[in-house]
């Protein structure tokens, strides 16, 4: 990826709102560890997790953009886009454990959270690294900006 700061943020928000939303809608009913929770509550939790990835992500992108400045190429290798799921996942998991994420009374079980988080991440990463260029022919030349 060859992102600019605004391109990073726009791409993240757009892909979470599209790919992330579709994956969440499909995966929530089959996620493990749901217990007796109603499907509506499980969706609510799933969507809050997705929204948190988006909101926290804006801060993460600022950090990534800063780190990218140390790279001569000013690029963001494909691998980085995948591996950043580790710190981002851990932070969000920590915040859920501390019950400081608004909109959720009790955090989801570990398996529910991690599977949901990883699958969404992987889907967004795959789309960003290829298929995204099919409908949006100018996107990759504009540092990931859509508008």
């Amino acid at each position: 990826m060859l992102p600019t700061l605004s391109g990073r943020i726009q791409t993240r928000l757009f892909l979470l709102a599209t790919v992330g939303l579709v994956v969440t809608a499909l995966i929530v009913p089959v996620l493990p560890g749901a217990g007796s929770a109603a499907l509506g509550d499980r969706y609510r939790t799933g969507l809050v997790v997705l929204a948190s990835v988006a909101v926290l992500g804006v801060c993460w992108e600022l950090l990534y953009h800063f780190l990218m400045q140390f790279r001569w190429e000013k690029d963001w290798p494909t691998l980085f886009g995948l591996l950043t799921l580790v710190p981002e996942g851990l932070l969000l998991w920590g915040l859920l454990e501390l019950d400081v994420v608004p909109g959720i009374t009790a955090g989801p079980p570990a398996a529910t959270f991690w599977i949901h988080f990883a699958v969404v991440w992987l889907a967004v990463w795959l789309v960003a690294n290829g298929p995204m260029r099919v409908p949006f022919v100018r996107w990759r030349f504009r540092g990931g900006r859509l508008v």
Binding site: M1, L2, P3, T4, G7, M68, W72, E73, K74, D75, R140, F141, R142, G143
Partner: peptide
């Protein structure tokens, strides 16, 4: 060229 001339920061 440094990679970002083709779409990223250096291009912008």
């Amino acid at each position: 060229y440094p990679k970002s001339v083709w779409g990223g920061q250096l291009k912008a």
